[in-house]
C-alpha cells in the first residue's frame, strides 16, 4: 500500500509480501549520511513488476530534459509540474500564458510534435521525448512570422493576453488547412478564446494569409 506522507515508510511498505511489487533498490542510501538534508533530487526507485524492472519517479524532484524550440533544456522538477509552468518558470519562455489552467481557454497553446496542444494539461515529465515549439520559435531574427505580421496588420489583438496562443494555433491550422472554409475555421480554432472579442481581426488575419499563401 502506498502512503503519502513518508517516502521512507513507503519504501519499506513496498517490500510487503502481499504487494505484487518487490522493492529492490533504496536509492537514498547511495548518498552519504551527511548529505541527507540536501537530498532534493534522488534517482528513481527501481521496482520489479511482472518480472520487469520499472522506474518510479518522484514524488520529489526528478532530473528532466526537454527539446524546446530546437534547443535542449534541463531542469529538476516534481512530476506534478505542468509543461506550461516549466516553460514559464524554469526557462523564461513566457509566451505561452497561464489563464484558465484547465484546458479551456487556449492561451497556453504550444506545439508538441507539430500538433497544437494545451501546455497546462500536460505534465512536464511526459513532454520530455517530444519536440516542443512555443510562440518564441516563430520569429526569425527581427522578422515576424507571417501569421504574427497578419495579426499586426489586421489589428487582431487588444489586451494581447490570448494572442500568443492564437498565433500558435493559427500558424499550425494554416499549415494543415491552406485554404480553410469558414466551417474549418470555426472547428479548427474553437480551442482559443479572446475575451476582448478580437475574433473579427483574427479572421481577417487568416484571410490575409490565405490570399498570400501561408
Amino acid at each position: 500500500m502506498l502512503k503519502r506522507r513518508s517516502f521512507v515508510k513507503k519504501n519499506i511498505l513496498l517490500n510487503n509480501q502481499t504487494n505484487p511489487l518487490t522493492f529492490r533498490d533504496v536509492t537514498f542510501l547511495k548518498f552519504p549520511a551527511s548529505h541527507w538534508r540536501y537530498r532534493i533530487v534522488v534517482g528513481p526507485q527501481v521496482i520489479t513488476v511482472a518480472g520487469k524492472e520499472v522506474l518510479v519517479h518522484g514524488p520529489g524532484k526528478v532530473p528532466m530534459q526537454f527539446t524546446i524550440n530546437h534547443k535542449k533544456y534541463k531542469a529538476c522538477l516534481e512530476p506534478r509540474v505542468t509543461l506550461l509552468d516549466t516553460l514559464r518558470d524554469q526557462f523564461g519562455l513566457t509566451g505561452a500564458k497561464r489563464v484558465c489552467d484547465r484546458a479551456e481557454c487556449g492561451a497556453c497553446t504550444v506545439l508538441m510534435n507539430k500538433k497544437a496542444m494545451y501546455a497546462c494539461s500536460v505534465l512536464a515529465i511526459e513532454a520530455q521525448a517530444a519536440e516542443i515549439l512555443t510562440v518564441e520559435s516563430l520569429m526569425r531574427e527581427n522578422t515576424l512570422h507571417p501569421v504574427q505580421q497578419a495579426f499586426v496588420d489586421n489589428d487582431a489583438s487588444q489586451c494581447g493576453f490570448c494572442t500568443p496562443g492564437f498565433v500558435v494555433a493559427c500558424s499550425v491550422f494554416l499549415d494543415e488547412h491552406p485554404s480553410p472554409t469558414p466551417e474549418d475555421i470555426r472547428r479548427g480554432l474553437a480551442g482559443n478564446f479572446c475575451r476582448c472579442g478580437t475574433y473579427d481581426g483574427i479572421k481577417k488575419a487568416i484571410a490575409q494569409r490565405m490570399q498570400r499563401g501561408a
Binding site: 502506498l2 513488476v49 518510479v56 518522484g58 520529489g60 526528478v62 506534478r80
Partner: peptide
C-alpha cells in the same frame, strides 16, 4: 496539485500491476 509518483510502464501487464486494487490511490494517465 498534490505530489505523486510517476511510472511509465511499457506493457499492459506492468501497468496493471502498478495499479492499486482500490480507487483513489492510483490513476491511469
Amino acid at each position: 496539485m498534490r505530489a505523486f509518483d510517476y511510472v511509465s510502464p511499457s506493457t499492459k501487464v506492468e501497468a496493471i500491476h502498478l495499479l492499486e486494487t482500490r480507487w483513489g490511490k492510483t490513476e491511469v494517465l
